[in-house]
Design a protein around this nucleic acid. Structure first.
Lengths: 201, 201
DNA sequence: CGCGACGTTGATTTGCCTCAACGATTGTGG
DNA sequence: CCACAATCGTTGAGGCAAATCAACGTCGCG
């Protein structure tokens, strides 16, 4: 049990070390603020109307964040597999009621950081201001690229792009989740996969 | 001339003060890194293939950032009016060639911060790590909401939402720019505006 | 004044959705 | 360990939201 946790924390520490260098004491302090959570497939760690308390790092497994709209349709805003963070970001940073579900797609091991602990951490170890700035900037740049793809490409082009960029993810998530991420119906995605869309030339 | 610049800097300082508290010396240092730029209508401050060197704060006027895709179609990723920042974010933070145009929609006064100056600023005054973290987090949350709107709403609903949230912007930007921001053709936006879409019930 | 940029309107087309029905696979309780 | 249900993916037919195309009005500007 202790061994397992050590491995989990080491992986996260390595991830952090890619962006900022911590002293051993700072590392120990950081780890003391974390908690490890196991979630089963289909289990939700965030759901609408509850305030999202944690920022979650995926050690193993996979998660997705999605909205259910007024027509009961699902729309996936994010996936997270090994080494990514996930949360209802708007709910987390403003500490207001969530609008999203954040759900495990497989049995998943998470490392979670509490909102208050994060604030404390940034005050105590200002390097973490830098850390969260950097990962948020990258997330923003990523999302902006995705937004541009959705504005400028057809469903088929978005599908091809995703398959090229994230072949691992496409193999691990259910097809309806991928369709709702790419902004198309499951039926249409299925047809694209099986080349059943009549093309010209 | 000096008066005019003072007003510009004071406005930006007030904006900064909403997020972090600076000493007078820090403020002076910060201002020393800035430069003021006037741009005429239709002038571009960023264009594809050039590395975007500045983060720009709009003091007065308005700007837009857009992509031209392989079909020569424009897609607007962001507007900025008074008191907002704009840049080709991906190009700026990774210091790689831009893919976007950033263009003035009116005669505009900008305050610009150079990439290297920004790095220096964060090292010299770590409060700015915090500042940029906070504004980036907000931008990210904003963009995520927009992404969800685009995934879950019809063109008409997106138009209504925008008109409710940003009535000021809709009056200041040309219609083709708004259409390309909302992800619809100019013709369709025109029809929505003039209630020329046949509705049921 | 005349040209080019911008917006409007109607006719037509199309990319993708919806609906419906049917396989395949997974999970679960008897 | 099998039966059966539920979930997930596939396929085709038909429909609709929004794009495209085309033509014209209008305004601002050189």
């Amino acid at each position: 049990m202790q061994n397992e946790h050590t491995e989990v924390y080491d992986t996260l520490k390595k991830y952090i070390a890619r962006h900022i260098q911590l002293t051993e004491e700072e590392e120990r302090y950081f780890v003391s603020l974390l908690r490890i959570t196991m979630v089963k497939k289909k289990q939700c760690i965030v759901q609408p109307d509850f305030i999202c308390r944690y920022r979650s790092y995926v050690f193993s497994g996979s998660m997705r964040a999605y909205l259910i709209d007024s027509n009961a349709q699902e729309h996936t805003i994010a996936f997270a597999i090994d080494d990514w963070w996930i949360t209802d970001y708007t709910s987390y940073i403003f500490q207001q009621p969530a609008t999203l579900f954040v759900e495990a797609l497989e049995e998943t091991v998470l490392v979670q950081l509490d909102y208050n602990a994060e604030q404390l951490l940034m005050e105590t170890v200002p390097k973490f201001e830098r850390f969260f700035r950097i990962i948020t900037q990258r997330s923003f740049a990523f999302l902006q690229q995705r937004m541009l793809s959705n504005l400028s490409m057809t469903a088929e082009q978005r599908y091809e792009l995703f398959m090229n960029k994230y072949p691992q993810i496409s193999q691990r998530v259910p097809q309806y989740a991928l369709a709702s991420y790419l902004g198309m119906s499951t039926e249409y995605l299925s047809k694209l996969r099986n080349n059943r869309i009549s093309k010209k030339s």
